[in-house]
Design a protein around this nucleic acid. Structure first.
Lengths: 272, 272
DNA sequence: CTAATAGTGTCTCTAAGACAGTATGTT
DNA sequence: AACATACTGTCTTAGAGACACTATTAG
C-alpha cells in the first residue's frame, strides 16, 4: 500500500501530516458575494438584492450580500448559508460566477471574493428589509448602460459601459467597463461583478434552462416569454420563442391568466 | 465631499481605515493552479504540463503547477508569475477557470485554489524538465474516459468518467465525475480541475478564437484543423471546418508544408 | 499508376429571424 | 365595434453535417 511510502525524511504520509505545521505567513480573507436575482411579481423588471452599507468604506453605498467563508465549509456551502440567512430559502439555484482578487479592492484588508449567481422564483420573492436597508433593485442593461433603480427609495444607480479591448495571447476581445454616472453608487468592485453576472445570465439563458429558476411551478408561455425578455433585455418574436422552448416545457392541461393579461392562457410546467 | 462623511462612531473614512484592525481569525491559504496546454510539434496530441510530487501528501502523484497568491498581487498576476517561472514565457493566453474550495482537498491545511487555463503555441513548447520531474503528458478525453500518458516515462493515468445528475434549483443537469482506473494518479482534486478545464477549452473552441493560441504565427489550414480536432477530441469535415473558420484567418500568399503532410499548402495567419 | 492530401461544390436539415394571419376574449 | 392578446403558419437566411468531386504530388 502507498500508506507505507516514505518521503526523503523517512516519514510515512501519516507521520508527515502529524508533524506538518503550516508556515506563518499572511493569508487573505476569503468571502462569497452573491448576485441574488428574481423578477418582480408584476413582471415589470428583473430584480437584484442589494444592501446599503452602514459603515466605512463605501459608507451609504450599495453592496452585494455576502460574507466570510468559514474554515470548515466550501465557498458553495458558504453561499448557501448566506442565502439562507438572507432569505430563509434553501435549495436555490446557485452557480459560481468568478473570483475577484485584485489587491486593494477592499481598502481595509486583503479580501478575495468568490462571486455566485443565485436565482429565485418570483413567487418566493422576499420583501426588502427596512431595518437592515436591504432592497430589491430593478436591474436593466443595454449596450451602453447598466441601470439599477429603486422606486420606493427613489434611488438611481447608473453606470455607463465603455468599450475596452483586452489582449490575451494571440487573441483580442472587446469587453465593457462600467463607469459611474449617477450620484448613488455601488461599493467595492461590485459594479464589475454585477456586469459579469448579468452577462453570464444572458449567455446561459440562450443555451441552458437557467431562466426556469425564475419561474414558479406553473406559468403561461406569455409570462415565460416576458421573463426571458427581461433577462435578455430585448423583445422576442412570440412564434420563434415558443418554437425554441417547446421541448423544455409541458402543457399541464389547466388554464390560467397571464400576470399582465386578462385572457386565459394554457398553463405549462418545466419539463425535466 | 463624501470624504467628510462620518460613521456612527463619528469617524471619517480616513480615520476609520487608520484605526481599523482585521479580526484575528483563521484564514485559508489561496493558491493558483495552472492548466498549461499546448500541442506537440508533430500534431499527434494535445499536451498538458504536470509535475511529480516529491513529498507527502500525494507523494509520487502528478500535480498541476501552481503556487501561492502573494498578498500584493492578484490571482491573475500570480498565475502569470508562475507561468514565467515554469516556462520563461510572458504574454501567454491566460483565463480563469474556476475556484476550488472544498475543505480537506489538501490534507495539510485549508487551501482554496483558483484554477487558470493557459495556452502556448506548439513552437514555444518547452521540454519536460527531468530535474524537477516536470513532464508534458498527452491528454485526451472521450465520452467515458480521461487519459493522460507519457511515452518517455511510460506512465498512464486513466480516469473513467461516470455520469452523475446534479440538481440546482428547478433544473437538473448531467455531468461527469472522474473515477481512478490506472495505478498512477493525479494529486488532490486535480482530476476534477483537468476535466473542467478540458470541457471549458472544448466549449470555447466552438464559439471563440481560443484555439489560435495553440498555433504559431503562420500555419496551414490542415494543421489548424488537426489542432481543432485534438482539442475537440473528434474528427471534423474539412469543408465544414474551412467554412467555419474562413473569417478568422487570412491567406499570407506564402506556401508551406503541413506538419504531417508532404504536399504544399497555403499558409494562413490569424486575422484579428 | 496509386495513394494520399489540398481544396471546392452542393445537398439536407435545423434553427433563428421576421411577419402575417386566425381565433378569442374584454371594454 | 375596436382592440388586445393567445396561438399558429410560413418564408428567408445561415450554419452544421455529410458526401462527392477535382487537382496535385510523392513514391
Amino acid at each position: 500500500m502507498d500508506s507505507e511510502l516514505r518521503n526523503k525524511d523517512g516519514l510515512t504520509e501519516k507521520e508527515f501530516l502529524l508533524q506538518y505545521r503550516p508556515g506563518d505567513y499572511e493569508r487573505p480573507s476569503v468571502t462569497v458575494d452573491i448576485l441574488l436575482f428574481t423578477v418582480d411579481p408584476e413582471l415589470n423588471s428583473l430584480k437584484l438584492l442589494l444592501i446599503k452599507r452602514g459603515n466605512h468604506p463605501y459608507m451609504n453605498c450599495w453592496a452585494l450580500p455576502g460574507g466570510f467563508v468559514d474554515m470548515d465549509e466550501s465557498a458553495f456551502t458558504a453561499a448557501n448559508r448566506e442565502l439562507k440567512e438572507e432569505t430563509g430559502l434553501e435549495g436555490i439555484y446557485l452557480e459560481q460566477l468568478y473570483t475577484y482578487s485584485q489587491p486593494g479592492r477592499d481598502p481595509r484588508m486583503r479580501v478575495i471574493s468568490i462571486a455566485y449567481i443565485a436565482l429565485i422564483p418570483m413567487t418566493e420573492a422576499v420583501a426588502g428589509d427596512d431595518a437592515t436597508d436591504t432592497e430589491w433593485f430593478d436591474i436593466s442593461m443595454d449596450s451602453d448602460r447598466l441601470l439599477l433603480t429603486s422606486k420606493e427609495k427613489d434611488i438611481t444607480i447608473e453606470y455607463l459601459l465603455k468599450n475596452k479591448t483586452f489582449e490575451s495571447g494571440m487573441i483580442t476581445y472587446d469587453n465593457q467597463v462600467p463607469q459611474l454616472k449617477s450620484k448613488s453608487k455601488l461599493a467595492f468592485d461590485h459594479n464589475l461583478i454585477i456586469y459579469d453576472g448579468l452577462m453570464r445570465l444572458r449567455n446561459k439563458a440562450d443555451y441552458t434552462d437557467i431562466v426556469f429558476n425564475l419561474m414558479g411551478e406553473q406559468f403561461t408561455l406569455p409570462d415565460l416569454q416576458r421573463v426571458y425578455e427581461m433577462v435578455l433585455g430585448r423583445k422576442l418574436y412570440k412564434k420563434n420563442f415558443r418554437d425554441k422552448i417547446k421541448d423544455k416545457v409541458v402543457n399541464t392541461g389547466e388554464e390560467g391568466k397571464s400576470i399582465k393579461g386578462n385572457k386565459m392562457s394554457a398553463l405549462y410546467s418545466y419539463k425535466k
